[in-house]
Every structure is written in structure tokens, then in C-alpha cells.
Design a protein around this nucleic acid. Sequence first.
DNA 1: AATATTTTTAATCATTTGATTAAATAATTT
DNA 2: AAATTATTTAATCAAATGATTAAAAATATT
Lengths: 202, 202
Amino acid sequence: MEKDITTEEKIKEAARKIFLQKGFAGTRTRDIAEEAGINLALLNYYYRSKEKLFEIVMEESLKQLFLKIILTLNDKSTDLSSKINIAVDLYIDILKNNPNLPLFILSEIQANPEKFKKKIGFSNVSFHDVEIIKQIKIQLDSIGLEISPLHIVVNLISMTIFPFAAKPLLKIVGNMDETAFNHFLEERRVLIPLWIKSILKL
Amino acid sequence: MEKDITTEEKIKEAARKIFLQKGFAGTRTRDIAEEAGINLALLNYYYRSKEKLFEIVMEESLKQLFLKIILTLNDKSTDLSSKINIAVDLYIDILKNNPNLPLFILSEIQANPEKFKKKIGFSNVSFHDVEIIKQIKIQLDSIGLEISPLHIVVNLISMTIFPFAAKPLLKIVGNMDETAFNHFLEERRVLIPLWIKSILKL
DNA sequence: AATATTTTTAATCATTTGATTAAATAATTT
DNA sequence: AAATTATTTAATCAAATGATTAAAAATATT
């Protein structure tokens, strides 16, 4: 039993749930309070303002979506082929537990681009220095394909993330219930690496 | 000169611009009025309410994103290979002119799933009856690949749409300005059909 | 146990925001 | 031209919403 979850944490968890669902503008602090089962004033007592609370949730969400994956993509000790498997695996795992993380982050950026310009410049590392980009570049050269390695990474991320962003739509169009959708995702867990590798002739 | 654009139209255009950028909850009717250069009361005079105006903008946005593409995918007179080219072409053209259309639609659905359950059931046509699905099924059978044709369509749409949804992020990560980003898109216009066809061994 | 500190609550404030109203202006009809 | 109708404006309303306050309750400290 984790009964001893503090009020402060309860509020953040509730905020996270509602913010990810409704976005910043669509969220009312009263909804967060209700979800957390606390008095509205406690939100301001612990977090000062809706904005501050949002900042924290967003910060953690960005980390959750990017940190692990960047470490994975940048790892020097795994070869390209395994790295592709691991990356897809990792993303699907993270997103199965946080299905609306991508849409949340992307649409908050769209609604407020200036605010994120600085925040996303987390690593001052040029993308050319990321290990997987180098690995892809080498492989593309060796098969004589003259395209930017970025295309490959974008493909991997697109094919993995998009189904989550479009989940409600996909379920309707594909006539899938939750179980069928999960099955669809598990198929993609296997297929996406195969497709990426076939592009790279790996 | 199209000087004779009516007030009613001016409001809708302004609404479209702001709604697509900020979403329903993030948009204030005052911003729409300002963008349109009209008195706030005119918005309600012509459209009754923010909701009604939004409904109209959303209706048109859905049509814009889905109608042409569905007609394209469902066309019986084009073979699979050309259809893949045409679909990617069409999507990139539409989205170049409306870069935040996808994120707008997807996030409004996420924020309000119930409301769209019925609205998206536009065609009661099962996805199995859509021509491109049949064409893909035939091709997959002929190469002995036992996967759902939906995967292929999802790949095509993912790889095409996602770069628009992630545009601000992509520009930062890939060190691209607007011109470079457009160039990136034009490369994908050619590449995506090749990748899809390679999956299908076409 | 008494005191001080932290946490929680109910009530309220002030601002924002969608919407309305009544009057003014412009356009159309008779 | 007069009368009617449509459009536009400024002022205002009412509800929603983020935030604060002062008091109560719970907890920790002495």
C-alpha cells in the first residue's frame, strides 16, 4: 500500500492527468482539485499558480518523452540494428503507459511556440553528433543512398508515435476496440524495426 | 482584388486562424474579433456563439483533411502504385498550406472524444471496403506478407503528417530554417512513396 | 500539556471572458 | 425622400475561473 502519498504529490498527479488530457487552456484548477480530492486553495498553497504547476508537469513530461530515448539513440555501445529495436520497444512501452503524452507536448508547443524555443534547446549538441545519426550516415553511404539520416529517424518516430496521437481516430477507422488496438501496437513493435531496416538494407 | 470579402467571412477566416493555432479552449472570442478587425458583438451577431463558430471551422477542417484524401484512396481507376504517389502528393500540398491542421484536429479529438465519436463516423463504409485497402491486401497476399493493410496506410499517413505536427521541434532538432524545412518536405514527397512501395515490394 | 507550526477549509475577491442590449449608422426598399 | 431593414458600435452583464484571506484543524516542537 502506498497510502502515504503526500498531498503535494496527489495534486501533481491529478494535474498531470488533466493537463495531458485537456491541455493547459482547457484545464480548470477546480478540475485538478476535484481529481486530487483536495480543496482548491491547496493547489495555490503548494504550487503558487496554475502556470507554475503546469511548468512542472510539462518539464517532467518532456523529460519522460525525450530523456530515455535520447540516451538510447546516443548510446555508443549498441550497433544500429539493435538500437532500432530498442528504440521502438522503448517508445511503445512509454507511450502505452502515457498514450496522450505526444499530442500533449506537440500541441502545447504549437499553441505557444516562443515559450518552447529555449526550453527545447536542452542539449546544445548538434544532431550530427548523435550516435544513431552517425551510424545511419555510415550505413546510407555504404549502400549509396544520398539522403539525410534525419529522414530515417523521423520515419522511426513517426511510425511509432503517430498511432498514439491518432488513437481515437484509428480505433474508429480500423474498427478496433482497446484490445485490438493493443494488438495492432504489438504488431508494429515487431514490424517497424523491420521496415526501417529494409530502408537501410540492414 | 477580392475587396468584397464579407464581414461574416472575415470572422470565419480569423476564427479558423486562431482556433487552428490555439485550439478551442485557448482561443478568446476577443482575439478572433481583433484578428478580423471587427467589433466583438459581430461575432455573436453572425454566429450566435463561440461554440457554433467552432463547429463550423471544425466541420470545414475535417472535410479539408479527409474528404479529398478519402476520394483519392477510394478511387477505383488508379492502380496502387500511382495512388501512393498521388496520396502523398496531395497530403503534402494540403498541409503545406495548413501546417497546423493535423495537430488541431487530433488534439480537439483527444480533449473531447465523445463529441467526435459520431462526427467521424461520416461514412458508414467499413475500412475493408476502401479501394486502397483492397489493393494493398491483394499485393500483400501476392508477396506472402500476412499483416493488416491498415499498417501500410498508417505508415503512409504517419510519415507524411507527423513532420507537420512536429514542425517546431523538427526545425530545432534538425537545425532547419523555414527553407530547409520545406526542402526536407520536398525530399519526403519523393521518398515516402518509395519507402511504402519497398515495403510492398512494388 | 502548552505552544508553535503546518496543513486544510470555506468564503470571497478580482479578473477574464462569452454574451447581450440598446442605440447609432448604413444600406435597402417602398 | 421616407420608411424599413440590416449592420455595427459602445457599454454592460453574468458566469466562470484563478487566486487570496482569515479562520479552523491537524501536526510537530518545546
